[in-house]
């Protein structure tokens, strides 16, 4: 840690903001505070932030969506500090791009240790890891997805159009191949929102994506249905240099 490290604490509880900011300041950090998602954006646009301590239950936005959006455009490390402490909550938080997850109630010394640890790890990683992901090309079962151009190529080299939603969905599948992804998780990963009762958005998008991939819906080989759960993308996926 250096005395220049600037931490942004995002929490709607003033007592938590006071506790965390005071404790981190006493340990040499510069700290800014935001009480909601709008405040977070304001601080980010005006300051250089080294790490964000993020609550999930904010009054104006879902912290998970904020985390996912942050991760899609920046490498700023995120430590989630949330009362949602269940196993699935932690898994989803980490898979949405958080670098660490500390459930409330918490001890400030443990938070301090985790903040230091995440900052240490962030410094040892190449700064362009996000850029390299956005410049990647995925190959699977003869297909190629060129991420910078969002272009899908069939095994015979034909260009296949993908809508924005289909592109988001296939990116989730390509990042989590050969793994059962529940429908609610797919919706959160691909679109950053929670599933609602009778919500068929994901099923419809999977159906359209299967058509694009010429995957027989009656006997799919790429996107397989896991009954009552969700889907699994069944292919070996390789990541390489972009086509263009």
């Amino acid at each position: 840690m250096t005395t220049q490290d600037h931490i942004l604490v995002v929490d709607d509880d003033p007592d938590i903001c006071t506790l965390v900011s005071d404790f981190l300041e006493k340990n040499g950090f510069k700290v800014s505070v935001a009480m909601d998602g709008k405040g977070l954006q304001e601080v980010l646009s005006n300051s250089s932030i080294d790490l964000i301590v993020l609550d999930l239950m904010l009054p104006d936005e879902d912290g998970l969506v904020l985390c996912r959006n942050l991760r899609s455009r920046s490498n700023i490390p995120v430590v989630i500090l949330s009362a949602k402490g269940g196993e699935m909550d932690r898994i989803i938080g980490l898979e949405m791009g958080a670098d660490d997850y500390l459930p409330k109630p918490f001890h400030p010394r443990e938070l301090l240790a985790r903040v230091k640890s995440v900052l240490r790890r962030a410094r040892t990683q190449p700064e362009d890891s996000l850029e390299s992901e956005q410049n990647a090309c995925y190959r699977f079962a003869g297909w190629t997805l060129d991420v910078p151009t969002r272009q899908l190529y069939s095994p015979s080299g034909d260009k296949i159009f993908l809508s924005g939603g289909e592109f988001s969905l296939i990116m989730v599948f390509l990042n989590y191949p050969n793994r059962v992804l529940p429908r609610d998780q797919l919706l959160t990963f691909a679109h950053g929102r929670e599933i609602e009762p009778f919500d068929r958005t994901i099923d419809m998008q999977v159906s359209r994506l299967r058509k694009r991939l010429q995957d027989d819906p009656k006997s799919p080989s790429l996107i397989k249905t896991v009954r009552s759960v969700g889907y699994v993308f069944s292919a070996r996926v390789e990541r390489g240099e972009p086509v263009s």
Partner: peptide, 8 residues
Amino acid sequence: RMKGSGTG
């Protein structure tokens, strides 16, 4: 909020 902050 009390649950989340007390132990801290």
